[in-house]
Amino acid sequence: MADDRFSRREFVAATTSTVGALALAGCTENQSSDGGGDGLSGTIDIAGSSTVFPLSTAMSERFKNDHDGVEFNLQSTGSGGGFANHFCPGRTDFNNASRPIQPDEESACAENGVEPVELTVATDALTVIVNNDADWVDSITVEELGTLWSGDEQPETWADVNSEWPDEPLELYGPSDASGTYDYFIEAILHAGDSEVTHRQDYSATEQDRTIIQGVEGSEYAIGYMGYAYYSENTDRVKALAIDNGDGPVEPSLETAKSGEYAPLSRPLFTYPKKSALAEEHIAEFARYWIENSTSQEIVADEVGYVPLDDDQQSEQMDALESAIEEANSS
Rank of each mutant, 00 (worst) to 15 (best):
P103I: 11
Y289R: 02
A324T: 10
V142W: 11
W136E: 07
G246C: 07
R267S: 08
D104T: 14
A287G: 07
T211A: 06
N30A: 09
E111V: 09
F53M: 03
P116A: 06
S33P: 03
G69P: 03
E156H: 01
I140H: 03
R210D: 13
F185Q: 04
D236F: 00
Y231N: 02
A159E: 14
A192D: 15
Q314K: 13
P155T: 14
F53G: 02
I223E: 01
N329V: 12
K64P: 00
V128C: 03
E233T: 15
A222T: 11
A58L: 06
L278E: 11
I46H: 03
A125G: 06
L145E: 15
F72M: 03
A110K: 10
N73I: 10
P268K: 09
S204R: 05
S33F: 10
A110S: 09
E10I: 12
T141Q: 10
E118D: 06
K274I: 13
D202E: 14
V114C: 03
G224P: 05
Q102G: 04
Q154I: 14
Q297Y: 10
S79P: 02
A222H: 05
A277D: 11
G81Y: 14
W149Y: 13
H191S: 08
S107H: 04
T92A: 10
G35L: 05
S330V: 11
Y272R: 07
G113C: 06
N85M: 15
F6C: 04
A125C: 05
Y184N: 15
P103Q: 12
Q31A: 08
S266F: 09
P252M: 02
C109Q: 04
G305Y: 05
L309S: 01
W158F: 01
I325S: 00
T295I: 08
L278A: 08
S296I: 06
E281S: 12
D244C: 08
P273D: 05
E187P: 02
G81V: 11
Y228M: 05
W158H: 00
S330E: 14
S79V: 08
A25D: 09
T141Y: 13
Y262P: 00
R288A: 09
L148E: 15
V250Y: 12
S315G: 05
S296N: 12
L55A: 05
F270P: 07
D135T: 15
V304D: 02
V52E: 11
T123G: 01
G36D: 04
T198H: 03
E118P: 01
V161Q: 15
E196S: 11
G174V: 09
W158G: 02
E168K: 05
E207F: 14
N234V: 00
Y231M: 01
